[in-house]
Computed example of a mutant assay.
Amino acid sequence: MAMGEYARGLYYLLECAAAYLHLSNNYMAFCNLNTAENLIKSVDFRATVINQFEEATFYSLKGEVGYNMGQMNLAKKFIRKALILLNRRFPFTLIGVFFKTLMEVSKHAFHQKKQQFLYSRIAIVRSLCCCDLLWLKMCLLCDREKKLGFLYQQGHCLSLLWQLFSLDTATNSKKFCHLAALMKVNSAEESDDESQMGPPSPLGTLSSCPQRRGSNYVIISSYTEFSLCCQMMGNQDKWMKYELMAIQRSSHLRVIGGGLLTTVKLAQSLAYMKLCLGNLPLSIQLGYRTHEMCVRLKKPKLDYLVLCMLFKAFFLSIRYDANLCSHMDGLRRMVYGEEI
């Protein structure tokens, strides 16, 4: 920054803040974001053009820090600002939520029908000659990667937003929560469609490219989050439907590399959902298998989350058995006329 490279300085500060958040160090992330905010507000930096995506990332990181530190209203404010910069506005009123929900439901149905059209486009692209394919790849690659970046960031912001509304005790918060989760599903499906539209690799199919593998994890995680949201709202039909959709989507993945890691993360999410539902035996079974796979894959951070969930499930299971035994003893005493 002393040399006048303000854009690079901002990028470095945002990367540091994201790294500290990944390590759960909210204080250092907050310090780096404060430095970045002072840089953005400085007069010299205003002379340069601020990248819209980087500014949206700045607000999303501030919202995530606010969420981790319990500042829920402040976190909502920053996440909404980030979504505006990412061209995905979130409504403030119930009327806006109602009409936005209708739009998102119709968009979700459209994404399901769009798959056949995309496959026909892929067949047309594959019929092009090599020179046309190389030219098309150079033209589309930059715009496609930029759009995918926007879609992934939208999904991250919407994931935080529905969790924020799920912790809100207001009466109408469930409607906002459901809308945010549904918008995340649509963003994930749109990123999946966008990755399918990319030029095919001569060495393999589209499912083998990095963008395609990333979209698989994004769309599976969006299904599991929407299923959890519907489970918390008591909507059994939707919760079971999207849980099954996530499992079916994961069944087509290769059980190696990124596909195996995505399957393990899905198993961890399902174990947590069963824990929230109160199905302790199934939660323990899924959690134990996920723990074994995390050990084999050498993923200590994911294993730590799984072990924390397993501890809760085992603890509640032991407490449940103890309470059941005490209640059974009390019933026996009542039947035989003994004092409780």
Score class of each variant (00 low, 15 high):
Ala2Asp: 15
Glu5Asp: 15
Tyr6His: 09
Tyr12Met: 07
Leu14Phe: 09
Leu14Asn: 11
Ala19Arg: 09
Leu21Met: 15
Phe30Gly: 01
Asn32Met: 05
Thr35Phe: 01
Glu37Leu: 12
Glu37Thr: 11
Ser42Leu: 11
Phe45Gln: 03
Val49Met: 10
Gln52Pro: 03
Phe53Lys: 09
Ser60Leu: 06
Leu61Ile: 01
Lys62Gln: 15
Glu64Ser: 14
Gly66Phe: 02
Met69Tyr: 00
Gly70Leu: 04
Asn73Gly: 04
Ala75Asn: 08
Lys76Ala: 05
Lys77Val: 06
Ile79Gln: 04
Ile79Leu: 11
Lys81Arg: 12
Leu85Lys: 07
Leu85Ser: 01
Arg89Tyr: 02
Phe92Pro: 00
Phe92Asp: 06
Ile95Glu: 15
Gly96Thr: 05
Gly96Phe: 10
Val97Pro: 10
Lys100Met: 13
Ala109Pro: 00
Gln112Pro: 00
Gln116Val: 09
Gln116His: 10
Leu118Ala: 07
Ile122Leu: 06
Ser127Trp: 00
Cys129Ala: 06
Cys131Ser: 11
Lys137Val: 02
Lys137Asp: 08
Met138Ser: 11
Arg144Thr: 15
Arg144Ser: 14
Lys147Trp: 01
Lys147Asn: 05
Gly149Cys: 08
Gly149Phe: 00
Gln153Trp: 01
Gln153Pro: 00
Gln154Pro: 00
Gln154Ser: 02
Leu160His: 14
Gln163Ile: 04
Ser166Lys: 06
Leu167Gln: 14
Cys177Asn: 07
Leu179Pro: 04
Ala180Met: 05
Met183Ala: 03
Glu189Lys: 09
Gln196Pro: 00
Met197Ser: 13
Gly198Val: 02
Pro199Ser: 03
Thr205Arg: 05
Ser207Tyr: 09
Ser208Gly: 12
Cys209Gln: 13
Arg213Pro: 02
Arg213Met: 14
Gly214Pro: 06
Asn216Arg: 08
Tyr217Glu: 13
Ile220Lys: 08
Ile220Trp: 11
Ile220Ala: 08
Tyr223Trp: 14
Gln231Thr: 03
Asn235Ala: 05
Asn235Tyr: 03
Gln236Phe: 07
Asp237Leu: 07
Lys238Gly: 01
Lys238Ser: 15
Leu244Lys: 11
Met245Ile: 01
Met245Ala: 14
Gln248Val: 05
Leu261Gln: 07
Val264Ile: 15
Val264Trp: 03
Lys265Glu: 11
Leu266Val: 11
Ala271Glu: 00
Cys276Pro: 00
Gly278Pro: 03
Asn279Gly: 01
Leu280Phe: 09
Pro281Glu: 07
Ser283Asp: 04
Ile284Cys: 04
Ile284Phe: 06
Tyr288Arg: 08
Thr290Lys: 01
Cys294Asp: 07
Arg296Asp: 13
Leu297Cys: 14
Pro300Ala: 07
Lys301Cys: 08
Asp303Thr: 03
Val306Pro: 02
Val306Trp: 01
Val306Arg: 01
Met309Lys: 06
Lys312Glu: 15
Ala313Cys: 13
Phe314Ile: 02
Phe315Cys: 06
Phe315Leu: 05
Leu316Phe: 11
Ser326Thr: 12
Met328Gln: 14
Gly330Cys: 11
Gly330Tyr: 13
Arg332Glu: 09
Val335Arg: 03
Gly337His: 04
Glu338Lys: 04
Glu339His: 10
Ile340Glu: 11
Ile340Met: 12
